[in-house]
Design a protein around this nucleic acid. Structure first.
Lengths: 205, 205
DNA sequence: TAGATTGTTAATCGATTAACAATC
DNA sequence: TAGATTGTTAATCGATTAACAATC
């Protein structure tokens, strides 16, 4: 099957999350119209997205929630668990460590790194905090897939360089600053302030 | 001037953040090529975005950093300060309260709300925590522009309803669940797990 | 003047929506 | 059968990129 663009992938993950909720409520069937009401996306778009997969819907009836979830996951989440490592266990880092995602079983934070002697050696939510120097070794041993930057922006580039050196090729950057990395490395920036402001500037009045 | 789509607004905010950094380093001129290297966006796109505004660049020379910043801000940030209120002062809420944005002076968190008696009355980073019941009153008095949801997902819908009731029309939802709101209310969802997974699924190998 | 860079117009690309046939 | 809903094809819309003229 052809590779899907990121936009669609993100929506499909939202469908999976929604289906999990429905399954938990013992709802066995759902129509694209109902998914549309829950997610706020148009029903046509939802059907179009779903039709990228081996189709599982029945006209007049809708989709079996469990089947649809299984079908969507089979394509997207072949690798069983995505391994994350976190750099920086400050306020935001600790919150990320404790983030209660629906997809917990699909994503696992396997190690955290910090420079503070107070923090190193501790465990938060079962995740051990290591000194930064051990990152290359641990990243390899854990087969980490994604590195998260939650350090002060002054150390952001330095940490990014170190992550690349350690073999990471995917970075989520929570610091409000740009980082420069080799082109093979994928970066996703999450600057809360920009998110807040863009919502404000975008909406009318 | 015509209303810009959100995508462009978000990039323009990134240019402003980048320009602030350059100005702090006493760089007075910058070309679209250089902005491209810093931000990772194409130089053509950057020029196109900038050309939506009264143009300020000089061929062969580039843009004056201070002028460009002023021009971009003049359009986007007419209202001097965007007021945020936060619902839920747990791990993530506390981190958001302390988030060190570049645009600090453009965005102000004016009040936080929580149900816990332990937290109510305290101040974090200068922001007072109030009981949830006082939200309608305080939201009106502070002219809050955006409400942030950082409560456990079980209470997410309930809190969203209360925000709408209090007069908020823009919501940023950090909980990993969908909320349903009247169509006049704008919602931006930030589910970390979905962000992590979509980066993983999207990138090759 | 020559070369670099901006700003704009046209072409391409991709994503969304509209229309409708298929089918349960 | 009639009606609702899926899945698909075609049309529209918007965003990006290519090409190039303008200009410092």
């Amino acid at each position: 099957m052809k590779k899907l663009p990121r936009k669609i992938i993100t929506r499909v993950l939202l469908y999976i999350r929604t289906l999990e909720g429905l399954i938990k409520e013992k709802r066995f069937l759902v129509s694209s119209k109902q998914l549309s009401e829950i997610t706020g996306l148009s029903d046509v778009k939802i059907r179009k997205d779903i039709s990228n997969f081996k189709t599982v819907g029945k006209p007049r009836i809708g989709y079996k929630t469990a089947d649809l979830k299984r079908t969507l996951e089979a394509y997207l989440l072949q690798k069983h668990v995505v391994h994350l490592v976190l750099f920086g266990v400050g306020n935001l880092g600790s919150a990320i460590l404790r983030y209660p995602g629906y997809h917990r079983e699909k994503v696992k934070l396997v190690a955290a790194f910090d420079v503070s002697d107070q923090k190193v050696g501790k465990k938060i939510d079962g995740v051990r905090i290591y000194p930064v120097e051990r990152a290359p070794e641990i990243i390899k041993r854990c087969h980490a897939d994604i590195g998260i930057i939650a350090v002060p922006k002054e150390h952001c580039q330095e940490v990014a360089d170190y992550m690349v050196l350690s073999g990471l090729t995917r970075i989520v950057n929570f610091a409000p600053t740009s980082i420069s990395v080799p082109s093979k490395v994928q970066v996703r920036n999450m600057d809360f302030t920009i998110e807040f402001l863009s919502l404000f500037c975008d909406s009318p009045k």
